[in-house]
Design a binder for these strands. Structure first.
Lengths: 153, 153
DNA sequence: GTAGGAGCTTGAGTCGGCTCTAGGTCAACC
DNA sequence: GGTTGACCTAGAGCCGACTCAAGCTCCTAC
């Protein structure tokens, strides 16, 4: 058990969070740090492991589409400390809902794309190497064939 | 069996696709239509049911994050007609992969968020109404409590 | 003692994808 | 014949989230 608080440079933090140094400075300016980023006597930023942990959470929230203003608000609540758990929960729940929606929509999209991929595989199967069997496919999705469109086939 | 090809105004198409009239004109300019949009003698755009069907596909591809250039390329391939199915398939497969990745990442994010929501529910459970039991929770994710951070608890 | 590299600040630029504005045409209704 | 209201074009503007540039300061190593 050593290094209670690590003291990392912006480059090191960039490396371990996957964010660019630009983005780290940008996030700081945007108020996306729970406590002010410390500075060395030379003016350079000094990050702790806590900062890295927090950024890990931020990366996930961002990756799931939380907008910066919401992330900033959440950060503020955490910075204020205990007593505002309701608001944090509300914020997270709202985001949770959005992510679930997004997941649902994406799943639907994936279905369509999977289907279309199958259609094209069949087409290439049949006219391609040998006259393969060609799994039965419902009659949709081959995409308008340019010449005589007709609600696809 | 009537209206082989409907003849819809831009407003009607906007309504049935969920896209704005601005976006429809923008897409047209971007080459996101399989065949040139027809014009009435007055210069107004006249869309067919095929256009609407195609836009339906586009909406789904866009919703799943396909960038406009890729969508344009796909449109071009469909416009060119039969013979380029390999490239269409490649394009769709690539997108399919990206959507699956995105889905995976989003699912992970959802797990974290679900977990955090649970943590806050427990906190509010305990200090709130009555001193509820509080389901056992692993020791992560309560978020740095501002004062004495310490790798959260 | 100087070259290289990491870091600093402020402010501008980029990118994707729309979204809106200005100024105009046209058809329909009162 | 005047007013809506839907549509037209070209081009500018916007938004979110970075990303980069310019010009500077340090520190380290040769």
């Amino acid at each position: 058990m050593a290094e209670v608080t690590a003291a990392l440079s912006i480059g090191q933090v960039a490396e371990r969070t996957g964010l660019s140094v630009h983005t780290l400075r940008f996030y700081e300016q945007q108020g996306i740090f729970v406590s002010a980023v410390r500075r060395a006597s030379t003016g350079r930023r000094v990050y702790s492991q806590d900062d890295v942990d927090w950024l890990g959470v931020c990366v996930i929230l961002r990756a799931s589409g939380m907008p910066l203003p919401a992330l900033r608000r959440y950060t503020e609540l955490v910075r204020e400390g205990a007593g505002n758990e309701e608001e944090r929960l509300a914020l997270l729940r709202e985001h949770h809902g959005r992510v679930r929606d997004q997941l649902g929509r994406l799943t639907q999209c994936l279905d369509l794309i999977t289907f279309k991929v199958g259609v094209y595989e069949d087409i290439l199967d049949q006219e391609g190497p040998a006259a393969g069997s060609g799994r039965p496919r419902p009659s949709v999705g081959g995409d308008v064939p340019a010449s005589r469109p007709g609600t696809s086939a």
